[in-house]
Amino acid sequence: MDPVLLLDVILLLLAVAAAFTAITLRNLLGSVMMMGIYSLLLAVIWADLFAMDVSITEASIGAGASTILLLMALTRTGTRERKSGDHSLPALIVVVLTGLVLIQGTSELPRFGDPEAPAHRHVAPQYLAQQVPKVAPPSEAMGPAPQPAPVGEDAPGNFGHHVPNTVTAVLAAYRGYDTMFETVVIFSAGMCLLLLLRPLPRKQEESIDE
């Protein structure tokens, strides 16, 4: 068996086990810890899929900021969940149907690493043609070599012609809005944590204790 595929399967099973444990635990502190482990496993999975920007965001927000935020909430609410016999059957049906739709949608996606995938046939060649002056001859699976984009300010889609690094050009130009708002999310999470972790005035602490 391919060791990379084996690693992916193990990480996926661990993530599913962590999510299931977080849902079923009655101890809220343990549930928060399992959610942090789940987010950390997802960050490793994204890194294994070479989605480093998503991995960094998941690790910082999911495993880091969200875990600290939930731990701070537990200091105000307690660590034990109250037993409740209420179960919503319509909610369960909606969740199951949504999961089936998502599974059906992923079954039609191209195989991971497939050179015939639309992203490799159309999007990536355009990026490379605008960033790399001379592209190496492609293999038979990749099809014809992309032609260099026209040079100049009026060239269509020529966002990063002046950037020598392809990855930098993609993140800063083609995915500029995505990268900008990811930075905004991380900054907002940090500011919220600073506000929550700030020391309370003595009078406010006494009113909370009462």
Rank of each mutant, 00 (worst) to 15 (best):
L128S: 06
P125L: 00
P133C: 05
P150M: 01
P137T: 09
L74A: 08
H122V: 15
R121E: 07
R111G: 13
V123W: 11
S107L: 11
P125Q: 00
A117S: 11
L89H: 03
G99F: 01
R76M: 13
A91G: 07
D86G: 03
I68K: 05
V101D: 05
Y127R: 07
L128A: 13
S107G: 04
A129D: 09
P148A: 06
G85I: 05
F112T: 15
S139R: 11
P115K: 02
R121W: 02
P148I: 06
A91W: 06
R121L: 09
G99N: 05
L128R: 05
E108P: 01
R111N: 11
A91I: 09
T98A: 14
P90H: 00
A149R: 07
T75C: 08
P118L: 02
Q104E: 09
T98I: 05
K134S: 15
R76W: 13
A145I: 11
E108F: 04
T79E: 01
V101N: 04
G143L: 04
G78N: 08
P148Q: 05
A129C: 08
Q126W: 03
R76Y: 10
G105D: 04
P144N: 14
G78S: 04
R121T: 08
P144T: 15
L109G: 01
L74R: 07
P144D: 14
A141M: 15
D114Y: 04
L109I: 05
A141L: 14
S107T: 08
R82C: 05
P90Y: 00
D86Q: 07
R82G: 13
R121M: 13
S84R: 09
Q130L: 02
R111W: 05
E81D: 07
L100C: 10
V94M: 12
H120A: 13
L70T: 03
S88G: 01
T77I: 14
G143R: 05
H120T: 11
L89C: 04
E81V: 01
V132H: 00
R111E: 15
L71W: 02
R76A: 13
A73D: 13
A129H: 07
A124K: 08
E108T: 11
T79S: 09
L100I: 09
H120S: 11
L71K: 06
S84V: 07
A117Y: 03
P133M: 01
I103D: 06
L70A: 12
K83E: 14
M142A: 11
E140D: 10
L100A: 13
I93N: 04
T75D: 06
H87I: 15
L97I: 14
P90Q: 01
Q130G: 14
R80N: 08
L102Y: 05
S84F: 02
M142H: 08
A145P: 13
P138K: 05
V123R: 00
V132R: 00
E108R: 10
L70G: 09
P138D: 07
M142I: 06
L70D: 12
T98W: 05
E108V: 10
V135M: 11
R121H: 03
L100W: 00
L97R: 03
H122R: 12
P90N: 02
V101F: 12
L128P: 03
D86T: 12
Q147S: 14
A136I: 09
G113A: 04
